[in-house]
Every structure is written in structure tokens, then in C-alpha cells.
Simulated assay, not measured.
Amino acid sequence: MSDLHWTDATDASSVPEDDVIGLQLAGHDIALYKVEGDIFATDNICTHGHARLCDGFLEGHEIECPMHQGRFDVRDGRATCAPVTEDLRRYPVRIENGRVFLQLGS
């Protein structure tokens, strides 16, 4: 892969359907979600309280924070339910040869 801005994160098969996993990647705490066959990536730490979203509950395209039950849309990181008001950072995802690549940026 010649594009240096994409980081190899994991094997696509390691992300279970309708679930979330957490991983550490290049200094980032990342949550990976698989919904309807698509993989999405966001920061793994809730913007409201210091809770790991990979410990939360994924329902459809929304992840529920395990601490205060706020929700985010995993497709775009948008805060969808109080008490969260600040969106999550979302990372572009690319699947190539069965591998998940993320564009982490700075």
C-alpha cells in the first residue's frame, strides 16, 4: 500500500457483526464497529465522561456509553442522546485484502 496516511489496524474478520471492539493504534484509543457489514471507527473515549465506548452497548448505528448512557452515531460520530453534547472524532476506514486501514491524521 503506497499511501502512507493509512494505518493498518486489524484483520476485518476480527470485528464482529453488530458489535464493537477497542484497540490501541499509533497512540490513539480507537473503537471499531461493524454494522450491516460496514466497519466504522471513532475515538473510544466518551466525550462526556472518561469511559471506553468498547465497553458500551451497540444498537443499530448507535453506541451507548457505559457510564451515563449517552449515545453516538458510529457512522459520523454525532452525539445523539443526552447527556453527551460533543461529537466523537471519526476516522475514515478502508478495507483492503481483508485488512482494516484507518486514516488517523494528526
Rank of each mutant, 00 (worst) to 15 (best):
L25D: 12
D43R: 13
D3A: 06
D76C: 11
A82M: 07
L104D: 04
T7N: 07
R89A: 13
T85P: 00
T7D: 13
P16T: 15
E86I: 14
D55R: 11
A41Q: 06
G98Y: 04
R52Y: 11
M1E: 14
I39P: 02
C54P: 11
A51H: 05
D73Q: 04
D43A: 11
M67V: 05
G70V: 01
G37D: 02
D73W: 01
G22I: 11
R89G: 08
G56V: 00
E62S: 11
R90I: 14
A41F: 12
V93N: 09
E59F: 05
D29R: 14
R71F: 03
A12G: 08
D43S: 13
R52G: 07
S106N: 13
E96N: 10
I30S: 04
K34E: 04
L32G: 08
L88C: 04
Q103M: 14
C46R: 00
F57G: 00
G49K: 10
Y33V: 07
M1Q: 12
C54S: 15
L102C: 07
L32P: 02
I21S: 09
I95E: 15
R78V: 12
F72D: 00
T47H: 04
G105N: 05
M1I: 14
L4T: 08
I21W: 11
P83Y: 03
V35H: 09
G22T: 08
D87P: 12
D43W: 03
W6M: 11
D11P: 03
P83S: 04
L4Q: 10
A31P: 10
M67S: 11
E59R: 06
E64P: 00
M67G: 09
L32C: 10
T47D: 05
